[in-house]
Simulated assay, not measured.
Amino acid sequence: MSDQILRIAQHDRVRVLTLNRPEARNALSAALIRDLRAALAAADADDTVDVVILTGADPAFCAGLDLRELGGDGGNLDAVDDDVPAGHPWRPLSKPLIGAVGGAAITGGLELALACDFLIASERARFADTHARVGVLPGWGLTARLPAAVGPGFARRMSLSGNFVDAEQALRVGLVTEVVPHERLLPVALDVAAAVAGNDQPGVRTLLRSYRDAESHLLDPALSVEQATSRAWMADFRPSTVAERRAAVIDRGRTQNA
C-alpha cells in the first residue's frame, strides 16, 4: 500500500480497512482509490475473511475526492478501471461490507458510505453531498443509492442544498442503523461483524446476493442514468472551477451547524 494511506487489520474473521490520510480528512487521492480497490478485492478473495469494515482515521470518515488533485491540471482522479462496474466505487464484494462512520462523510465520501451494505455511526458523524457546491456530478451511484436510503425528497434536499446532516438526523431518516459514542464505534462495528461472521457463511452470502438482486431492477437503470448524465457534464467540465470553489466549500463545512 502507498505510504500506509490505507491501514489494514485483521480481527478474527473480520478485515478492517481504515482510510488513513487524516491531515486531508481522508480525502481520496488517486493512490488511495487504487489501494482501497485492491484491498477490498483481496479481502473478498481471502478465505480467512467473512466480513469487511470500512472506516476512516479521525477526525473524518472521508471528505470525498481530493480537490487539490481534482482541481489541478490532472483533473480526473477516477481513471477508468475495467474491473469496476459503472456506478460503483469498487468492484462489489460477495461478502458483507459494514461502514463505520466516525466523522464527516462528504460527497465522494458519502458515496463510499452508501456503497456499504449498512452503516454504523458515531455521535460525531456528519453527512453531506456537496457536488453542486463544487460543480461536479456524482459518478459512484449517489443519485440511485441516496434516495433508496433516505427517500427521494430528503435525498434531493441534501444534494441541492449541500447542507450537513448530523448523526441523529441520519438515524431518523434511515441513512445509518445505529449511533454510538465515538470511542465505541469500532468495538460496536466489530461486535456486529462478529455476529455476521458467526452465521452460516454460504447462507449469509446467498442472502446478501438476494437482497442485491432484488434491488437491481431499480438500482441498475438509475445507475445508467447517472453515468450518462455525468459523462455529458464532463464534456464541458473545467478543473479550474473546482479550484476556485474549493476554499468556500471547506470554510462552509467548518462553520455550518448541522
Score class of each variant (00 low, 15 high):
25 R>G: 05
62 C>E: 00
35 D>F: 02
167 A>M: 03
143 T>L: 01
226 E>Q: 08
93 L>G: 04
101 V>M: 05
256 Q>I: 00
112 L>D: 01
63 A>N: 09
62 C>R: 00
163 N>Y: 06
46 D>E: 06
169 Q>T: 14
59 P>Q: 04
248 A>H: 11
197 A>C: 10
125 A>G: 11
203 G>I: 05
113 A>I: 11
9 A>M: 07
175 L>P: 04
155 A>H: 08
125 A>L: 13
206 T>E: 15
239 P>F: 13
117 D>P: 10
9 A>V: 03
231 R>P: 00
90 W>L: 03
46 D>T: 04
36 L>N: 05
241 T>I: 12
29 S>D: 06
239 P>C: 14
199 N>I: 02
200 D>H: 14
22 P>R: 05
79 A>K: 14
21 R>H: 05
162 G>K: 03
46 D>H: 04
34 R>K: 11
17 L>W: 05
54 L>M: 08
191 D>S: 14
112 L>H: 12
166 D>P: 00
44 D>Q: 03
89 P>S: 12
193 A>Q: 10
65 L>P: 00
201 Q>S: 07
154 F>S: 04
10 Q>P: 01
36 L>Y: 07
165 V>K: 00
254 R>H: 14
73 D>S: 13
159 S>D: 01
205 R>Q: 15
95 K>E: 05
117 D>A: 10
147 P>W: 11
119 L>I: 15
53 I>Y: 09
254 R>C: 06
203 G>N: 10
139 G>V: 09
252 R>F: 12
168 E>I: 02
34 R>G: 04
64 G>F: 06
171 L>N: 03
222 A>T: 03
50 D>Q: 07
96 P>H: 04
195 A>N: 07
27 A>G: 14
253 G>L: 15
243 A>I: 03
169 Q>I: 01
140 W>I: 03
170 A>V: 05
167 A>C: 10
28 L>P: 02
67 L>K: 06
144 A>E: 04
213 D>L: 15
156 R>L: 13
4 Q>W: 01
241 T>V: 15
176 V>T: 15
55 T>R: 12
178 E>V: 02
29 S>P: 02
160 L>Y: 11
218 L>W: 08
1 M>S: 13
40 L>Q: 05
169 Q>N: 06
122 S>L: 08
209 R>P: 01
216 S>I: 02
76 N>H: 09
18 T>L: 02
247 A>F: 08
34 R>V: 04
176 V>A: 09
124 R>I: 00
169 Q>G: 09
164 F>R: 00
248 A>W: 03
153 G>N: 11
184 R>K: 14
42 A>P: 01
131 H>I: 02
207 L>S: 15
195 A>I: 07
90 W>D: 04
94 S>W: 01
178 E>M: 15
191 D>Q: 15
97 L>P: 08
55 T>N: 07
70 L>P: 01
171 L>S: 04
247 A>I: 06
71 G>S: 08
172 R>L: 10
36 L>P: 06
93 L>A: 13
149 A>E: 04
142 L>E: 13
55 T>L: 07
195 A>T: 11
76 N>K: 12
222 A>N: 00
97 L>Q: 09
62 C>P: 02
2 S>Y: 07
